[in-house]
């Protein structure tokens, strides 16, 4: 039983790898589906903004409030903006954005493509002279890959604003001083790797959602399953990629 489960895992991993490989071969073939790409960008990027912004704001606020006691213990209360900005920009905002998107977009793509598969819409596209992989997968993966970094940047901004409010709940730190401290602390080594990894997060969320939807089994149950496993796998993958990205940046001494 165990070996068969493991085998299944391996074969699925292989399938996902092949699916990803196909993405790159299809990506560079002509006829890029711009209209569909922009449509997806709108849904994936713009429509996720409120959710991402609210979560990021709350995270910024909470992290600031939670960090204060420890810093006060050291008498380093003035370091609050510095500490908060580094932890938010490096880790919390990108990962929270990715997780929220894995939940919202990953399941959305999984369910949408799953139901398209079940109702033969994917076949219909194929028949209508459209490569469904290009039309559905490439556009979605491209838009998650490009939109999630933008969402992450906005999440950075909003969470830092939350941090500003959090700093001012118990202490006093003027608007100018706060941002001055934030940008004094942040370096390219903080910002660039953290934004770079969100491209990977976005790619993973898109590709897993599409894979699960594209390979959905027949019936409504299959659609639900593919939406569900898309969320689970892409969330997990976000953490794995995060670990990898952090290790690589650490190894390259970019930090």
């Amino acid at each position: 039983m165990k070996s068969s489960g493991f085998r299944k895992f391996l074969s699925e991993t292989g399938d996902i790898a092949r699916f990803t490989g196909r993405f790159f071969t299809e990506l560079f073939k002509p006829r890029f589906e711009f209209a569909e790409f922009f449509r997806q960008c709108y849904f994936i990027g713009y429509k996720s903004l409120p959710l991402v912004a609210i979560t990021a704001f709350i995270m910024g606020l909470v992290i600031t409030i939670q960090s204060r006691p420890t810093l006060v213990e050291f008498g380093a209360e003035a370091w609050l903006p510095k500490m908060v900005s580094v932890s938010l920009v490096r880790e919390i905002a990108p990962v929270i954005t990715a997780l929220i998107c894995a939940g919202k977009i990953g399941s959305g793509i999984g369910a949408e493509l799953g139901s398209m598969k079940v109702t033969e819409q994917i076949d219909a596209m194929d028949v209508s002279g459209t490569n469904p992989y290009k039309f559905l997968v490439v556009t979605r993966v491209m838009s998650t890959t490009l939109m999630i970094p933008i969402l992450a940047v906005l999440a950075d901004a909003v969470s830092l604003y939350g941090g500003f409010l959090g700093t001012n709940i118990r202490g006093v730190c003027s608007w100018d001083l706060y941002w001055n401290q934030v940008f004094d602390t942040l370096t390219y080594g903080d910002v660039i790797p953290s934004i770079a990894k969100t491209f990977l997060f976005g790619f993973a969320i898109g590709i897993i959602g599409c894979y699960k939807g594209f390979n959905s089994s027949k019936g409504t149950e299959g659609v639900g399953q593919s939406a569900n496993s898309a969320v689970v796998i892409s969330s997990l993958l976000v953490f794995v990629l995060d670990l990898l990205a952090v290790q690589i940046t650490d190894l390259l001494q970019l930090t």
Partner: peptide, 19 residues
């Protein structure tokens, strides 16, 4: 694709694009 222009296909579940 060239052949498919000349061959129509009506799907059992219609396969109208929901979106």
């Amino acid at each position: 694709d060239k052949i498919r222009v000349k061959v129509g296909f009506l799907f059992q579940s219609n396969a109208l694009y929901d979106s």
